[in-house]
Design a protein around this nucleic acid. Structure first.
Length: 489
RNA sequence: GGUCCCAUCGUCUAGCCUGGUCUAGGACACAAGAUUUUCACUCUUGUAACCCGGGUUCAAAUCCCGGUGGGACCGCCA
């Protein structure tokens, strides 16, 4: 192989959620962007669980995160469930690794023990804020003598480990935002571990990203101001810097960071309501990214080809449910009837769906497919198919200026026509009824069709009477019209 | 309060780097119309935006400066 050029850096990215709650919709998009970026560069996408906070972390949430990511169709090549050569992929299982680097920092005097008590720290912080200063650690324990440290440790005084933050201008190139500069002099010395066995976020992130050979850190904008601290840590440990890319946040309607206070934030909430993964993916990617063409409908494979970090937006995006609904409706209409029926079935509970066979159920779904924004809409739309006796106001039966006598007459006409036919499919029924309707009132078909449709559905808005009658069958159809006529006696 | 980031229709955005082709394009939503017994789908049309002020220039949405506004972060959470 002659003249082989230097191999470019292998792209390795990660999604690193902490399992302290359900997968956040913003987290899902971060995972998606990482996945797309990795895939299109033939790189690796890694799932790492950041469960250093023992109190708040829970295996159940790890399971939930994995389940939801799988549901979306985002796949990783290394992670706690699939393993990989840079494992383990749960930080709680990497204590020994962290300890080694912690000891190194301590030995090199780049980190130090701090014996300040939290109450005092909090009081100082409040004082700094009230005086209009940037709250930061005042350095009380910065220059403690070896002797004092030793005796404090011997006395089992509670301590934490802090990292020296030096005065420095930290500059870096963010793949989305360009050049960014921070003055670390404004930062206080950060706590990197509660003790030797309990390292904290900034520290574990830096160690793991290095050891797992992460090339690009793609994360939420809320981490932008964490970046200089982590870069200083990288320098202290002799690590190289990964490339950073901070993606914009999802916003509430009032433009604040999307939070639980206003609506659903968990991906599962959307899953449960009957949003399709393809719709969610298409929606999430469009919130903050645009290919620069007029194309707006994308599947995962197309996104892998077309996505680019450079085209990611800098400003936050309001999470606009209406567009999600539109996209979801679109993808619902794209589904095959058999798969859509299977998807809808759970949402029909506890209605008695057993009274219909699969073919009939598919007809119901077919008739309502275009009206669905989300799968859970199906129940309210089609419940009338599953009840014995309809309950509705008799006024609904009236079309335009019809009087009671005319409505009754209209319904009786329908009975007469339908009783005399055996061809009970929607096409034949339509031909039959449209002809009859035009004969019944030459001005408008509604005089016959509206009362009939309401008699069958009990609703002002529904599918056509032909479709409903076909599914209901002749017997139930005639019975429902009879019930409607009874309202006028 | 400090630091950092951001700023085009109600919302998501194209255009900005490489000023003129921008009387600013698309999508959702909204409105009207067509179709229809109704709703939905579909189709047609419409309403609607360059945060403000200065500067550079023959020319600025686009470049520069300053305001203003919004957001994020400032933890022994991540």
């Amino acid at each position: 192989m002659p003249g082989k050029k230097k191999t470019p850096e292998k792209i390795r990215v990660r999604f690193a959620p902490s399992p302290t709650g359900p997968l956040h919709i913003g987290g899902a998009r971060t995972a998606l962007f990482n996945y797309l970026f990795a895939k299109q560069h033939s790189g690796s996408f890694i799932l790492r669980i950041e469960d250093t906070d023992k109190e708040r972390s829970n295996q159940a949430w790890t399971d939930e995160i994995i389940e939801q990511l799988n549901w979306l169709g985002i796949e990783w090549s290394e992670g706690p469930d699939v393993g990989g050569k840079f494992g383990p992929y749960k930080q709680s299982q990497r204590s020994d690794i962290y300890k080694e680097y912690l000891e190194k920092l301590l030995a090199e005097k780049k980190a130090y023990y701090c014996f300040c008590v939290p109450e005092d720290l909090e009081a100082k912080r409040q004082d700094q804020i009230s005086r209009g200063l940037a709250p930061k650690y005042d350095g009380t324990c910065k220059n403690l003598s070896e002797k004092i440290i030793e005796s404090n440790i011997k006395e089992h005084k509670t301590s934490v480990i802090r990292f020296f933050i030096h005065d420095k201008k930290v500059k870096f190139h963010d793949a989305i935002r360009g050049e960014i500069e921070f003055d670390t002099g404004l930062l206080g010395d950060i706590v990197i571990a509660k003790n030797m066995d309990t390292p904290l976020f900034h520290f574990t992130v830096v160690v793991d990203d290095f050891l797992m050979e992460i090339s690009h850190v793609i994360r939420g904008e809320d981490h932008l101001s964490n970046t200089p601290r982590q870069m200083l840590l990288q320098e202290a440990l002799g690590f190289s810097h990964p490339t950073y890319a901070h993606i914009p946040l999802f916003l509430n309607t009032d433009k604040s960071k999307m939070s639980k206070r206003q609506g659903d934030v968990a991906l599962k909430d959307y899953h449960d309501k009957g949003y399709l993964p393809e719709a969610l993916i298409n929606f999430m990617v469009l919130l903050g990214w645009n290919p620069g063409t007029q194309k707006e409908i994308f599947n995962l494979n197309e996104l892998v080809k077309e996505f680019s970090l450079e085209k990611v937006q800098k400003s936050g995006a309001v999470f606009n449910l209406q567009k999600l609904d539109y996209l979801n409706g679109y993808y619902i209409r794209e589904k095959s009837i058999s798969s859509l029926t299977k998807l809808c079935l759970p949402y029909l509970q506890p209605l008695n769906t057993n009274q219909y066979n699969v073919k009939q159920l598919e007809k119901i779904i077919e008739a309502y497919k275009a009206r669905l924004k989300k799968l859970s809409d199906i129940k309210e739309l089609t419940d009338f198919f599953f009840v014995e006796k309809l309950s509705y106001d008799k006024k609904v039966l009236t079309w335009k200026e019809m009087g009671d006598r005319e409505v009754k007459e209209s319904l009786e006409t329908s009975v007469k026509i339908l009783s005399n036919t055996e061809k009970w499919d929607k096409k034949s029924l339509e031909e039959l009824l449209v002809g009859a309707a035009e004969a019944f009132n030459t001005k408008n078909r509604g005089y016959l069709l509206w009362p009939l449709r309401v008699a069958l559905s009990g609703k002002e808005a529904s599918a056509s009477p032909f479709e409903i009658a076909e599914i209901l069958g002749k017997e139930k159809t005639l019975q429902r019209i009879g019930d409607a006529i009874d309202k006028f006696i």
